[in-house]
């Protein structure tokens, strides 16, 4: 991520230190993760100590300090999805992508996370990819869904 894009986001928030979280969220949305150089630039421009930025960036789950893939897979492990076989769906997703929850594959294609409820339990088991909800998933169907992403 280049300096101009970071500066544009910071300027949008008038360089206010109190907008730190919002600035980080905007960078996270554009870049999908927060590299060290970006955090240093934010610290320098907003005049916020690095310890504070690190504290916030590690506190909230919305921020990632490691690269994320182009597609975010969220497998719901909530109660309703769990009883309908979410763990088997997760197993197949892990097998197909070759990554565990919390990891990203080497060519930055997929990032896998488990979540605890997506709020549409009637559709369970639910897998959400890039914000699109795939309901009534089954181990046999996951390959057909994942093949649409590259």
């Amino acid at each position: 991520m280049d300096k101009e894009r970071i500066d544009r986001i910071i300027d949008k928030h008038n360089c206010e230190p109190s907008y730190l979280i919002q600035v980080l969220l905007d960078i996270q949305a554009e870049n999908s993760w927060l590299p060290g150089e970006v955090l240093e630039r934010v610290a320098e421009r907003l005049q916020v100590p690095m310890t504070r930025i690190q504290h916030i960036a590690t506190f909230y789950k919305a921020f990632s300090l490691v690269p994320k893939g182009r597609h975010q897979i969220h497998v719901c492990m909530g109660t309703a999805c769990h009883v309908r076989g979410a763990s088997r769906v997760l197993d197949t997703v892990q097998g197909l992508t070759g990554i565990e929850p919390g990891e990203t594959d080497l060519d930055l294609k997929f990032s896998l996370e488990t979540v605890n409820c997506l709020g549409c339990c009637a559709l369970g088991p639910v897998v959400e990819i890039d914000g699109k909800t795939h309901g009534k998933m089954a181990p046999a169907l996951t390959a057909d869904v994942l093949i649409n992403y590259d």
Partner: peptide, 9 residues
Amino acid sequence: KNAVGFIDR
């Protein structure tokens, strides 16, 4: 100096 801080939660 802010050399040391908390991380994670």
